[in-house]
Simulated scan of single mutants.
Amino acid sequence: MEEYIVSLNDLKKSYGSKSVLDGVSLHVKKGEIIGYIGPNGAGKSTTIKIMLGIESNYQGEVKLFGQDIAEDSIEYKRKIGYVPEIADLYDNLTGFEYLTFIGELYGLTPQLADYKAKNLMELFGIGEVYHSRIASYSKGMRQKLLIISSLLHNPELLFFDEPINGLDANSVMIFKEIMTQLAAQGKTIFYSSHIMDVVEKISSRIILLNNGKIAADGTIEELKQINQEGSSLEQIFNELTGFNEHQAIGAKFVSIVEEM
């Protein structure tokens, strides 16, 4: 039997009387890039936070690297990298101080953390601010810093939540190539975003969550075959989530804007 990097079995999570995850089961193999998508409130972030050990009090089984995370609450985290949608950075630190601090947390020597951090920032086009305080960084620079910090310790499993927010077009191209190369090296990636065309291009498999349940799971080609009306991931997304009012809402929005 093949061992999965990620294995969720009948995962359920509620906040009071509100059910957020309602029996999610999925199995992910090494080297897959999972486009993990769904409407706001579908349960995507909750799933990821459970796997990261940030959220607890769930029902069901969560295994990462073949180990139940309820039994191995620390060690598996050393193999994970994470870029959250919203992150607080230590503005008073420099890029050098922040990245070497993160590197040492994951067991890198200060020298190796410094070497890797400096070179990765150079490659990402922000080498000139390596010794500048993060408070002076633009949104794009901060996002690049977060991406680098998630990769510094060479993790086996990566979670990216809206990782290209604030990146310019050239940096997006570099980031997409980084993900492709990482997957080719056997890294497993969960990629969550509302930018459907990027998800469609980079993902080897797409999992669509809706109302706490998996509504679709397959390659983009498989999803197109199942949903004949959808020629793009955005159309498939709208069809499966039942949202078809965008044109009417857009027209009404513009009509109000134009009122004098």
Rank of each mutant, 00 (worst) to 15 (best):
V172N: 07
T241E: 04
L93D: 06
A87V: 13
F237H: 05
Y58K: 03
N238H: 10
E156S: 08
I54L: 12
S149T: 10
N170G: 07
D22W: 11
Q247Y: 15
L123S: 14
A42I: 10
F160C: 01
V83H: 11
S7L: 03
E229W: 11
T100G: 01
I134M: 03
L145H: 11
L146D: 01
G35T: 13
K12F: 14
K13P: 00
V28S: 05
G53T: 11
E122L: 10
G250E: 09
I34P: 00
I54A: 13
H153R: 06
A215I: 09
S171Y: 06
L105D: 05
K187W: 04
M173G: 11
G103I: 04
S204C: 05
N170H: 14
I148P: 00
S73T: 15
K201P: 00
M51V: 10
F175T: 00
S232T: 15
R142D: 02
I220V: 09
S149A: 14
R78F: 12
Y90W: 11
V172A: 06
L157N: 03
H194G: 00
K29F: 13
V198G: 04
E71A: 14
L151R: 04
G125P: 00
H194I: 04
I249M: 06
M141D: 00
D161G: 07
S138R: 05
Q235R: 15
I249F: 12
H131Q: 12
S231Q: 14
S136Y: 10
A248Y: 14
D68Q: 05
E229D: 13
T94C: 03
F101M: 04
G212N: 11
F96T: 05
L182T: 02
Y191K: 01
Y115C: 02
I249R: 15
Q67E: 14
M196H: 08
I206K: 09
S150W: 10
I48L: 08
S231V: 15
L146N: 10
R142C: 02
G166W: 03
I236C: 01
H194D: 02
S232Y: 10
S56A: 06
K139T: 12
E122D: 13
F253Q: 08
F237I: 06
T47S: 07
A184G: 03
V28M: 08
P155F: 10
Y58R: 03
L146G: 02
T180F: 11
N210W: 15
E2A: 12
E97P: 00
I178C: 01
Q67C: 10
T109N: 03
Y191E: 00
P84E: 05
N244C: 07
I102Q: 06
K187G: 00
I178R: 08
N210T: 14
L108Q: 08
Y98L: 03
I54E: 09
Q225W: 02
I102F: 06
G107L: 06
L26F: 09
V129S: 07
E234A: 12
K252A: 15
E104T: 15
